[in-house]
Amino acid sequence: MKITVLLSPGLHPLSGKPVLPRLEAQAIALGKSLGGVLSGLAAASCPDGVADALGHGLAQLDLIATTEGEDPMPLLAAALAEDGPKLVLAGRRSQGGEESGLVPYALAKALGLGVVADAVAIEPGTEPGTLSILQALPKGARRRVVARLPMVVTVHPAAPPALPYAYGAARRGTLRARRVQAAPGAPDAAPGLFEERAYRKRPKLMRGAGTGGSAAERLRAATEAGGAGGRVLTDLSPEQAARTILDHLAGLGILR
């Protein structure tokens, strides 16, 4: 099976230097575990960061040169249409640019593929031409999805860790500069619609804290233990107590 891993230059969280995003290194490991012919595809203005993928187990990487701020979508779509991979693995979203996470979906739309998000494990399905994908959900839950090939799969941070970086493998791997003919992407729908400025950190709402009333009331609600308290039952026999607790938990939808 032909597998393409989509790569992009990421930002180091501290220094801001270009690195290979962790999710994309994990995507390489996931693709290798599946077997088949694995190759990388990236659209970037310079190979910094992206080239590290060769050290993480990728044998071949195609790099499409772009100019700074160019939309990579049409170039990637044209290259993928030429290659025709069965499976495209990608991270959740690029780093350093718009970061809307639309590229995997837009590629799938352009090439007529299906999309499955947040994979932690992939294995061949029981029927031919399908894959069985384990999807990560919040709170440790999982979902097994059987989907038809070809498709785009994005990788979740809970996927198995990336292969360790190997200098020898990075030297042996081939990095090819690739040229594709593609119509230029649609220009920004309304340039200057949004003001670009330095990020300001904003606090999140405190879970359980009151949101109404004056500031003093909210502070009291946030710091006092539980306010007026709840139901207090004394002098119950253990059976009555157990019944009450189970009824309450069932009422909350906790007990299935």
């Binding site: 539980g226 308290g229 709840g230 139901r231 207090v232 039952l233 004394t234 253990p238 157990a242 607790i245």
Partner: peptide
């Protein structure tokens, strides 16, 4: 005070009943 439902009883006795 914090709980929405409190049972004033010995937890060690309630566990087998549960």
């Amino acid at each position: 005070e914090r709980a929405e439902l409190s049972i004033i009883a010995d937890a060690q006795a309630v566990m087998p009943a549960l």
